[in-house]
């Protein structure tokens, strides 16, 4: 089963949950071959049940200690712009679509998602362009996100501090 995992982090993002469960978005997902949708809705006002989208296998939960397993099991991750969620999905090597909450436009969290988008590590849209993005996105154009190199930091510090 091709799975999409949607995560909103520790807050809520009802608009994203509403958009992704709309019949147009579900249709777009189906046409791209996805047949299972897992939603992490956080403090959102609704926890959608399977009856919301009869045409796709739907699971939803609010919080888990770790969403690592859900990310691992996904073929596509759709996330809010939170740095933690973005880095976790990219670190697991998953294709990532970040949906911006335009009500939080000046949030510094957006900086990282915007930069990672400019570097072609993720796709980027708003709730209103979500369905179009799902229809037209080209995941093969995304570049892998290589882990940072703490060794460079250690080498620099060794030299600066005179460590043998």
């Amino acid at each position: 089963m091709k799975t999409v995992f949607v995560t909103v982090g520790t807050t809520s993002f009802d608009e994203l949950i509403g958009s992704i469960t709309s019949s147009a978005a579900v249709q777009a997902l189906k046409s791209r071959g996805y047949d299972r949708l897992v939603l992490q809705v956080g403090r959102g006002s609704v926890l959608p049940g399977p009856e919301v989208c009869p045409h796709i296998t739907l699971e939803a939960f609010r919080f888990k200690d770790s969403i690592a397993e859900d990310i691992k099991g996904a073929d596509l991750v759709i996330s809010h712009a939170g740095a933690g969620s973005c880095l976790e999905a990219l670190g697991a090597g998953k294709p990532l679509l970040v949906v911006i909450n335009d009500k939080l436009m000046n949030n510094h969290q957006l900086e990282l998602a915007r930069q990672l988008h400019m570097d072609s590590h993720l796709l980027y849209c708003t709730c209103s362009t979500l369905t179009d993005t799902l229809r037209t996105m080209d995941l093969s154009a995304l570049l892998p996100f290589l882990p940072g190199q703490p060794k460079n930091f250690a080498n620099f510090l060794d030299k600066a501090l005179g460590v043998q």
Binding site: A83, H108, L112
Partner: peptide
């Protein structure tokens, strides 16, 4: 070490 989250500010 500034967090990786800080890109421009």
């Amino acid at each position: 070490v500034e967090s990786i989250c800080r890109v421009e500010t």
